[in-house]
């Protein structure tokens, strides 16, 4: 389509066409051809964007059952909600457990 567009532009500016109506017709065809090429390229770029997969960052929210201790750590294999992780280092009485596992979603582009 780009070649077709260029050909018609060449015809118009080559000075061979005396009839202004024909010249307008050729310019219109060239514009249509270039628009088509532009739209195709935009669509190709959009198509490529869809496929890019971004792995998500997952966090484990650790809380103490007794005090207000709260910690957010990176998810590790074997973590699950309500998994007990031992005694709280802050109050030494309560049990630390995973209260939630979540992702903040993909990074904004």
């Amino acid at each position: 389509m780009a070649v077709v567009g260029l050909y018609f532009i060449g015809l118009v500016f080559g000075g061979d066409i005396a009839d202004p109506n024909i010249a307008i017709l050729y310019v219109t065809i060239a514009v249509l051809a270039f628009t088509f090429v532009l739209l195709t390229l935009t669509r190709m770029r959009r198509g490529i964007r869809i496929g890019a997969y971004t792995p998500l960052k997952v966090f484990s929210l650790v809380k103490c059952g007794q005090c207000s201790f709260k910690q957010i750590k990176n998810f590790a294999m074997g973590d699950f909600v309500f998994k007990t992780l031992g005694k709280c280092t802050q109050c030494n009485t309560g049990d630390l457990s995973i209260n939630g596992i979540y992702t903040e979603g993909p990074p904004k582009k």
């Binding site: 998500l56 997952v58 939630g100 596992i101 979540y102 992702t103 903040e104 979603g105």
Partner: peptide, 12 residues
């Protein structure tokens, strides 16, 4: 079907 988002967890 993907890892639970924070806003969904908080909805609990």
């Amino acid at each position: 079907i993907t890892p639970m988002k924070k806003e969904i967890m908080e909805a609990g």
